[in-house]
Structures are given as C-alpha cells and as structure tokens.
Write a protein that binds this DNA or RNA. Structure first.
Lengths: 234, 234
DNA sequence: CGGGCATTTGATTTAGCTCAATCCCCGTGG
DNA sequence: CCACGGGGATTGAGCTAAATCAAATGCCCG
C-alpha cells in the first residue's frame, strides 16, 4: 500500500479496486495502486512531457492520439479496461503521444518507484508486461496494414465488428452494441472523414447488414456480411 | 556458447560476431548467439507458425509484412541491423506476421531456452528488451498516424529523409543515400502504388529537392525542402 | 545484341475529400 | 406545451489525389 497524500482525484482507500487485473502475474502490483478518476476529455499524458506514471484502466475508454501541426488529430490507439498506459520506468524519454479520456475513466495509478520495486521482487511481472507490449505491437501493426490498404467500408465494418466482439459477450445472431466513439472520433481512428464514416454506416444499414436505431447504437443484423465487408481488402 | 550442431546456414564458430549489440545490458546474450545468414527473399518467420526463435540482425534489412487475402502485401515494419525479431519466450502464440529478408542478411539467433536462462540471470536484459519494444511501439504508432493522414508526397519524402538519417552518418549539405527498397517495396511500406511512388520521386526531383542519378541512389540536394515536404500533413 | 525486369510516363477512372445544406435529437426556457 | 437553439449526424454536389490501365523507356546481364 502506498501512503501518498490524497487529492480530489486520488483516494488511497480505493486501492483495493485495483485488484481487478486480468493477469495473475501482475497481482503483486494490484495492491499497490492509487485509484484515480478522469472526466471525459481530460488528458493524463501529454506528448513531449516526461512520463511519470504507469497506470491500468479500470473502467472507461481512453485514446492515444497524435495531433499533427495542421491541428487534425489521429487516434493511434484505444485503451480499454485492463490495458496499461505510460511506462513502468523513470528513465524513459518524453511521451510520444497524448493519452486522453474518451469517457469518464477510472484507473489505477502505479508510481514508477513502486512498479520498479515490484518488478525486482517479481520477475514474472516484467515478463508479463513484455508479453503484453509485444501483443500490442502486433495489434498496432495489424491496424497499420488496414490503414495502408483497406477501403473506407472495410475500415468501418472492421471497427464495428471489433467493437462488438470486445463489448458484447453474447454471440447471439442479432447483437446490439453501443459504439464508444462519436463519428468524428471514428474518423480520427480510421483515417477517414466524418462524412465518409457516416456514409459507410448508411451503406451497411441500407444493405441490411446493420441497424441504426439511434444514438451510437448499432444492431448487427448480419454478422457474416459484416465480417465479409471488414475483410474486403484487409 | 551454444554447442548446437551446425548446418549450412548456422555456424557456431561465428558467434563472436554476435557481440555487436548496441545495448550494454544485452552483452550477456551476445556470446550465446548462433550466427546465420539468409538470402534475399528468404523468410525467417511465417505468419501463423509458432515462433521458435529470437534473433538480432547483424547486417542487411528485413521486412515484417502482412499478406492479405487478396495477395497484396503490406510492409508493417522494417528491421535494421541491431533490431530484434521473434520473441524471447516459448509461450508466445503464433507469429502475427511474416519476417522476410529484403537483402542478404546475417543475424544472430538466440534459442529461446538460452534467452530465458539469460534473462533470469540478468534482469537488466529483460528491461532492455521491454524498453526497446515500447520504443518500437511508439515508432509504429508514428507510422500509423502518417498512413492515416499524410499525402503521397509526404510519405515518400518522409521515407527518404528517414532513410538518409538512418543510413548516412554525415550531415553534409548535399547527401547521397542508396535506398534499400525497390519502388514496389516502398509502395508496400507506404500504402501507395508503384506508380505513385515513382511520380512523387519525379516530382521531388523536378523541384530540385533530390537528384536521381540512377539505380536506387538518391542525392538530397535540399534537406530543408525535403523535411518540409515530409511534414506536409504529418 | 537481346530478353527480362524495374521504372517512368501518360490517359483515364474512382474513392474519398471538401464544401454546403439539412436533419435529428435533446435540453432549455418562455 | 411548444418554440428555440445547438451539436452531432446525415445527405448532396462537385472536386481532387491517387489508383488503374496501358505504353514506353531504361537498364542490367547473359
């Protein structure tokens, strides 16, 4: 347990919540976290700043994003509950990207000193972190390949399919998902414009593949057709 | 030293060469490598196969590539001398991508058992590997952001600039680089077509930014203009 | 000298962008 | 209860960057 002083957003008493780490190897760390919440739009890490923390997301969704000189930003990664962000070491260089809350977020912050001590005591933890990082690398490379060649339709369909897979535990024939992103955010993530994203959604709806009952909800009426649309030029 | 039996491409006697690892923390590993060479086009890892090895590139260039159902492939990463490939652990899942030699390659292969033993003995090594992997992740995310928004000209200019930076140690006003990739490979890397790559090169040449004396050689006549072209919509 | 390949160049098509208008959903206040 | 906004989403009408299709050129190597 870390006996840091609490602030409006940090409450040491909540650290037990941090025990919800999927990975058993990371259990030793779980007890050491400081609970913290972020409001939608709040950024935890800013590109260029030194990275002082390492954290694990409990609830909510964050984006890793790169804002280019022209001001438009690109989402180069999404962080879901269970994902780590920041770095466990102090010696790492400046942050390469911003990390911003897309929804209200609750996370478990680990001071780097704690992580470091913990890693020395539990070598399996470091390996687990390396394994996760390598998996993430493979995943980002997959995204890279999609951005390189896939059509707008395939990108949108792929995003819906992936979100449904991640969100909806049920594999019912007809499944309904609440997309966690606005059209604009989807555009930033998929390298498209808002209009194009919207058009492709309409197209999928017109083809009877999905239903759009309103808001950000999507009903997957034909999972196979959706998967096929996603594969198109993947 | 590993006393494995030698094969046409493996020669234990060459393992001393493997000492050329940039990172001091990885020195303990250096003595344990098995030297191996690959011909251009030979693939060391195939997507879907279990990954049995971990290696460090000594000389030459490799591509990490994803071949989609349609048969076109996308280069999702380049591996330069000093870079690691594969995974240090046996428990990792199937390879997410192919890894293929773009030139004749000489590398230093580390059997996973050896790496594992070595990592237990030298914890700093595991950290070094984690740091490298995180750096690579940041780099791939940078590429992702470029593919999402940059124009064809910016992609090509960026690639030339980056290659020059990596290759040519000299920062002379006029610098000359031998591009390690064919136009087709550049297209696969940048998410463009051969024709578009060629046109952008011609455009840069016409603008006096670069010279194309022949073959794969590029003379950088105006580094500032090249950098500016690369930033365009980065 | 000639064949095979990579590269360049040209002509045309098209997917997705831009600009612009409209719609829809909701919260707000009269 | 309904008018009024306002932000996100959708739809429409061109436009443009890059893809595609096709041909010509250059180059390496036997």
């Amino acid at each position: 347990m870390v006996f840091g002083k609490s602030c409006s957003n940090c409450d040491v008493r909540d650290s037990a919540l941090c025990g919800v780490l999927a990975d058993a190897a990371l259990a030793p760390l779980a007890a050491q976290g400081i609970h913290r919440t972020l409001a939608r739009g709040e950024s935890l890490i800013r590109a260029g700043d030194p990275i002082r923390l390492c954290a694990n997301i409990q609830r909510g969704l964050m984006k890793i994003c790169h804002t280019n000189p022209a001001g438009q930003d690109v989402i180069v990664g999404l962080l879901w509950p269970g994902d780590f962000l920041g770095t466990p070491f102090a010696e790492a260089g400046p942050a390469p990207h911003d990390v911003v809350a897309l929804t209200a977020v609750s996370l478990c912050v680990f001071p780097q000193a704690v992580v470091e001590r913990c890693m020395v005591a539990h070598p399996a933890m470091e390996r687990s972190l390396l394994t996760r990082t390598m998996a993430e690398l493979a995943q980002v490379r997959g995204a890279l390949s999609r951005l390189a060649r896939a059509t707008a339709l395939a990108r949108v369909a792929g995003f819906i399919a992936e979100t449904a897979h991640r969100r909806g535990g049920t594999d019912a024939a007809v499944q309904s998902v609440e997309l966690p992103l606005s059209r604009g955010e989807m555009a930033d993530l998929l390298g498209l414009t808002i209009e194009t994203v919207s058009r492709q959604m309409t197209r999928l709806k017109a083809a009877g593949v999905i239903g759009l009952p309103g808001g950000r909800r999507v009903v997957i009426q034909d999972p196979d057709a959706l998967a096929e649309a996603a594969e198109d030029a993947l």
